[in-house]
């Protein structure tokens, strides 16, 4: 047992046995938490279908790896404490041999590190946010209106001959800006594998944008409780090649016209 009446972190403190033990534990735990934390989460998120979603997955990776040394540090000390002397029984163990109430160096280090991590998270977040915001102003983007109502979505495609659909069709590698609104209560328009979500508010238009980069069929779900059939307010987004998309638009009946004529009351 080292002399506890002198400050702990003096001399060659890094050569102390328990410090080394904690350091080894810390390194192992950092690797473990970082690896498991990212792998499990990224696998659950599935394959991304847009750059936006790739960014989200990257953010999850970056934040998990950035947080893992901190988490591992707390875990190493906690495990170290558990592996140390334990006392069972109805009466307390003798009081500790040392009474460290303070360690200005440790506190300063902790606060500086957490402030730096905070700054790092902020910068990473702002860069990603900036990318998302820039896409909204893309001049090459096509625009699609999204209407949510209890309990279905539908879309119309400005520039087409009045085409509307309940399944969203998007051309691949084409920036799209969505103008989202609601007819009744709040909904939330979530393109799951595309990593985009924006609330649909009654009487207001909100905007979001995405550039799908994979051909396939993905999910659209409502992410804001909107009443009785909220769970069923879902449908699909079909991302297809530009040619397929144009063909689909052309194949749709011109829904602007009405085929119904009023009947004179028959005898």
């Amino acid at each position: 047992m080292p002399d506890t009446n002198t400050p702990y972190f003096t001399g060659q403190w890094w050569k102390r046995k328990d410090v080394k033990r904690h350091a080894v534990l810390w390194v192992i735990l950092t690797a473990f938490i970082g690896y498991v934390g990212t792998e499990v989460q990224v696998r659950a998120m599935g394959a991304p279908a847009s750059e936006t979603m790739e960014n989200v997955i990257n953010l999850m990776r970056i934040f998990t790896w950035a947080a893992s040394p901190v988490a591992a540090f707390a875990a190493a000390i906690a495990i170290g404490a558990l592996m140390g002397k334990r006392h069972y029984g109805d009466n307390p163990p003798p009081e500790s041999e040392h009474a460290i109430r303070n360690s200005p160096r440790a506190i300063a280090l902790w606060i500086v590190v957490s402030a730096l991590m905070c700054l790092f998270a902020l910068v990473v977040g702002l860069i990603a946010l900036q990318k998302d915001d820039a896409r909204l102003l893309d001049a090459k983007a096509i625009h699609i209106n999204v209407v949510g109502q209890q309990w279905a979505w539908n879309y119309d495609y400005p520039g087409s001959a009045g085409v509307r659909s309940e399944v969203l069709h998007l051309p691949v590698d084409q920036p799209v800006v969505f103008h989202v609104t609601s007819k009744d209560v709040k909904h939330s328009f979530w393109l799951v594998q595309l990593g985009v979500k924006i609330d649909a508010n009654p009487g207001q238009f909100t905007e979001t944008s995405v550039t799908p980069n994979k051909i396939g069929t993905f999910d659209i779900r409502c992410a804001e409780l909107c009443g009785l059939l909220h769970a069923y307010m879902q449908n699909k987004v079909i991302v297809e090649s530009k040619a397929d998309y144009e063909a689909w638009l052309a194949s749709q009946p011109d829904t602007g016209k009405t085929t119904w004529v009023e009947e004179k009351a028959a005898a």
Partner: peptide
């Protein structure tokens, strides 16, 4: 045979949908 009716003459609709 109809494909649509005027939106101001609708009584109700029958709309089936599901979970993606």
């Amino acid at each position: 045979q109809i494909t649509n009716i005027p939106a101001d003459m609708v009584g109700h609709t029958f709309t089936i949908h599901g979970i993606s």
